[in-house]
Each structure stands twice: as C-alpha cells, then as structure tokens.
Amino acid sequence: MIPRVLATPAAEALIERLRSLHGPLMFHQSGGCCDGSAPMCYQAGEFRTGAQDVLMGEIAGCAFYMGAAQFEYWRHTQLIIDVVKGRGSGFSLEAPEGLRFLTRSRLFTDDEARALEAEGLPAAD
C-alpha cells in the first residue's frame, strides 16, 4: 500500500511532543483559504469530521483527514507533512510552540498512481 500522507522526522517529533501534552491527536486539512489550507492538529475527536472528509491515512499514529474538495485537487500527490518556524493557526495545537505544520507534496509516479487506482479511493468519514 502506498501512503497518501507521510510525516518528516521533524513533524513526527513535534507530534510526539504535542501528544505528550494533549493526549491522542488528529489532523484535518480543508480547502479553505489561509489557515484552512494548512494541516491543523487537534486533540482526537475535537474536530468533527463528516461525509465531506476523506481519511487520507495516519501520520505518527494520528488520523489525517482532508476535505473532499481539497482531496480532488491533491489526489495525484503524496502529502508530506513537515514543520517550519513561524506561527500557525491559533486553533492548531502547535501554535504556542513557535512552529507550524506545513504540507509539502510530490506527484505520484505512474506506477504508484496505477497501484492507488487499483486500491480505490480512501474512505470518506
């Protein structure tokens, strides 16, 4: 199985730090402007997902959801969740850390795209 979402070692380290402070976590990335287009980290269950959210996979043991409209735009790419210095959204748990999560991406190869097509689309929540 080819992961649709991965985390860099820096992101994994921040996730572990946040998990030690807040307990189980989840991520959501919508298609909104500004903060909405960034990966947002919440305590598990704090953000209510619905039929318009796609479960992309997990990073560092945390579910990662994306809005369905945003998924249609990104479906041909692997998301790579990273961390950079700066202030993220006030709603995302990393905001007080002086860091923010950032989505990088790469296009799937033709072979990966065919394999993903055979697996089918990720489940909507």
Rank of each mutant, 00 (worst) to 15 (best):
L79I: 11
C34P: 05
V84K: 04
V54C: 03
R75A: 06
I81T: 05
V54R: 07
R114S: 15
G88N: 04
F71S: 00
E112F: 08
M26V: 07
Q29C: 13
G23P: 07
V83A: 05
R100T: 11
D82L: 09
G88F: 00
I81S: 01
L21D: 09
M1R: 02
A118V: 15
E119Q: 14
R106K: 08
F47I: 11
A115F: 07
L79H: 02
D111Q: 12
E112T: 08
G57E: 05
I2Y: 03
A68L: 11
H76K: 01
C33P: 14
M1F: 01
T8R: 01
Q78G: 05
W74L: 07
Y42S: 09
E72I: 05
L25K: 05
V54I: 13
P24A: 11
M1N: 00
A124F: 15
I80N: 04
V5F: 00
V54K: 00
I59P: 08
M56C: 13
M66K: 01
L14F: 03
A51C: 11
A11L: 01
E117V: 11
A10Q: 08
T109F: 06
E46M: 08
Y42H: 14
Q78D: 02
F91V: 12
D35C: 15
S105R: 10
M26H: 06
G23K: 06
F108Q: 01
R4C: 03
A115Q: 12
A115H: 09
Q70C: 12
A38F: 13
L99V: 06
G67I: 03
L79V: 07
L99K: 01
Y73M: 08
S89N: 03
E46N: 11
L79R: 00
C62L: 03
C33S: 15
A13Y: 01
D82M: 07
I2L: 02
A13I: 06
